[in-house]
């Protein structure tokens, strides 16, 4: 078990000047997490046409262009700044590809409204269920899945968002706090609450927490 503070929680003093070389370094260090954001938020209908790698490429170019603005911005870390640029790039791409019906940025990008790619909650569920059920009875699994699907659909969007940020995009607590514009304490309470609600939903699925052979107890 690793002791000590976590990188995300006790950031080094804010870097105020970012040159192109250190940007490349930050980008490369955080490439996987940024890719996760793109991969998670990219609309399923765009997957055939848009590769997450291309989105990252575009975001990088945009970051280079806006380099001189970083110092004056309110972003606490270069990563959060980069992430914001990635999100903006995603919004632009969705807008470009999906036309007028998707023009509302809230449906694509902005986090605060819980704008998920359409299939998120459903695929989230299907994988959770697939993850934990035994392979013996596919029919049982289908039933389980339908039940969890319904339940997760009902989950509060804020809860879903917090879970997604922490797990799918691998943001730290302080990063989530910044993203949602709340205090760190509040962010950590929200996360635990969302987790508890998810657990409550999953616990209603018979057999969900039986046979958790993948989690060592």
């Amino acid at each position: 078990m690793v002791e000590g503070p976590h990188e995300g929680e006790h950031p080094a003093p804010r870097v105020t000047v970012l040159d192109e070389q250190s940007l490349a370094q930050v980008f490369s260090d955080n490439r996987e997490r940024l890719w996760r954001t793109v991969n998670f938020r990219l609309h399923s209908r765009l997957r055939d046409r848009v590769d997450p790698d291309d989105v990252l490429q575009e975001a990088y170019l945009a970051a280079v262009q806006r380099l001189q603005h970083y110092g004056a911005s309110a972003y606490p870390t270069p990563f959060i700044w980069l992430r914001a640029i990635v999100r903006q790039t995603l919004v632009d791409i969705h807008r470009h590809h999906m036309g007028a019906q998707m023009r509302d940025a809230r449906r694509e990008g902005a986090l605060h409204t819980g704008g998920y790619p359409e299939a998120t909650s459903i695929s989230m569920v299907s994988r959770l269920v697939g993850d934990i059920t035994s392979p013996s009875s596919a029919a049982v699994r289908v039933d389980l899945m339908n039940r969890v699907e319904q339940a997760l659909e009902e989950m509060d969007p804020v809860d879903r968002e917090v879970l997604a940020l922490r797990h799918f995009e691998e943001l730290s607590n302080s990063e989530v706090a910044h993203e949602l514009g709340i205090e760190q304490k509040a962010a950590s309470i929200r996360y635990v609450r969302a987790l508890r609600r998810l657990k409550a939903i999953l616990a209603q699925v018979p057999g969900f927490f039986d046979g958790e052979d993948h989690v060592r107890s």
């Binding site: 998670f40 989230m124 987790l195 958790e212």
Partner: peptide
């Protein structure tokens, strides 16, 4: 809660 955390992490990898 930890088993749920583990499930979420596995879900992410699969996704």
């Amino acid at each position: 809660l930890f088993p749920t955390i583990a499930s979420m992490e596995r879900l992410k990898s699969m996704q």
